[in-house]
Amino acid sequence: MPEGHKTHFLARQHTGWFAGQALSVTSPQGRFRGDARKVSRKVMERCEAVGKHLFYHFENDRLIHVHLGRYGKYRTHSSPPPAPVGLVRMRLVGEARSLDLNGPTTCRVIDQHTRREVIGKLGPDPLAEGSSARKKRLVWEAVRASRKPIGALVLDQSVIAGVGNIFRAELFFELGVDPRLPGAALDKATFDSLWKSLVKMMRTGLKYGKIVTVTAKEARAPLATLEGRDRFRVYGKASCPRCDRPIETIEIAARKLYWCPACQG
């Protein structure tokens, strides 16, 4: 599932491609056909990311709300686009580019009221506009009030919007924090380090359009060239890069989490 850095990357990209254009919006698959008619041939103003959600704003005060989920994927084409491949839920066609969307969890047209309802259920987004100090304070208040494991809290979208399983594993490994620790047991200094590292990781992900948690020195290569699991320190790895002991997995919040018990226990 794409994490928050990717939705913000896509929002910037799609705004650059389509803002100010009257888009043709269709549904080759058919499931989105009725909603597509509500915004087709209307001018798209911008694409906005909040956590793992994307909102395409149109001139008639309607929005396309997309949540990619685990299987959602965009394909980019020039305009006019080729014949659809697979079950294309939504096709956006602009002046020079077009997008096909396959397999999203959510793809619907909504109004501003519904957008506010969706956002109201989310915690602060580290990459969104707004006061960083306020966002940090709100997350800290939610964490210190909970007895749930900190490894569950950072994955809870109502606590922090946009964090997924890869960021979670990499974050706790970088700080040497046991993800089983209850939120209420986390001291303020450790939380401050956690928030600082998370924001840095997500900004790096936004910059490159992919999660990269190693340094160029560690990778012995420019970060932009890294692919696959070479980008990570612990996620999907067999051995710890610090102590060389086996990496293990535990289940927290119904998701498998990679960690090093020797370095994080």
Results as ranks from 00 to 15, higher is better:
Gly4Ala: 05
His5Gly: 02
His5Asp: 14
His5Ile: 00
Leu10Pro: 01
Leu10Gln: 01
Ala11Ile: 01
Ala11Lys: 00
Gln13Gly: 00
Gly16Arg: 09
Phe18Trp: 07
Ala19Ser: 15
Gln21Asn: 04
Leu23Ala: 03
Val25Arg: 02
Val25His: 04
Ser27Cys: 10
Gly30Pro: 10
Arg31Thr: 14
Arg31Ser: 14
Arg33Ala: 15
Ala36Leu: 09
Arg37Met: 12
Arg37Asn: 03
Arg37Leu: 15
Arg37Gly: 00
Lys38Arg: 15
Arg41Asn: 14
Val43Pro: 09
Glu45Gln: 13
Ala49Asn: 05
His57Asn: 01
Ile64Ser: 02
Val66Pro: 01
His67Gln: 07
Gly72Ser: 07
Tyr74Ala: 00
Ser78Ala: 13
Ser78Gly: 14
Pro80Asn: 05
Pro82Trp: 11
Pro84Ser: 09
Gly86Phe: 12
Leu87Glu: 14
Leu87His: 14
Leu87Trp: 11
Val88His: 07
Arg89Phe: 09
Met90Val: 15
Met90Ile: 15
Leu92His: 08
Glu95Ser: 15
Ala96Thr: 15
Leu99Lys: 03
Pro104Tyr: 08
Thr106His: 09
Cys107Leu: 04
Cys107Gln: 04
Cys107His: 02
Asp111Trp: 08
Gln112Lys: 12
His113Phe: 13
His113Ile: 15
Arg115Gln: 12
Ile119Met: 12
Gly120Ala: 08
Leu127Gln: 04
Ala128Glu: 10
Glu129Trp: 02
Gly130Trp: 13
Ser131Ile: 14
Ser131Ala: 14
Ala133Leu: 11
Lys135Asn: 04
Lys135Tyr: 06
Arg137Asp: 10
Val143His: 03
Ser146Tyr: 11
Arg147Ile: 04
Pro149Trp: 03
Pro149Asn: 02
Leu155Glu: 00
Ser158Trp: 12
Arg168His: 12
Leu171Trp: 10
Phe173Ile: 04
Phe173Arg: 02
Val177Leu: 13
Arg180Gln: 12
Pro182Ala: 07
Pro182Lys: 04
Ala189Gly: 00
Leu194Ile: 06
Lys196Thr: 11
Ser197Thr: 15
Ser197Cys: 13
Ser197Asn: 09
Met202Trp: 06
Arg203Gly: 01
Thr204Ala: 03
Tyr208Val: 04
Ile211Asp: 07
Ile211Thr: 14
Thr213Glu: 02
Val214His: 01
Lys217Met: 03
Ala219Met: 05
Ala221Cys: 05
Leu226Pro: 07
Leu226Met: 06
Leu226Trp: 08
Leu226Phe: 12
Gly228Met: 09
Arg229Gln: 11
Phe232Gly: 02
Arg233Gly: 05
Gly236Tyr: 12
Gly236Ser: 05
Lys237Tyr: 06
Lys237Glu: 02
Cys243Gly: 12
Asp244Gln: 13
Arg245Trp: 00
Pro246Lys: 08
Pro246Phe: 01
Thr249Cys: 06
Ile250Pro: 01
Lys256Val: 13
Tyr258Gln: 00
Tyr258Asn: 08
Cys260Val: 09
Gln264Leu: 10
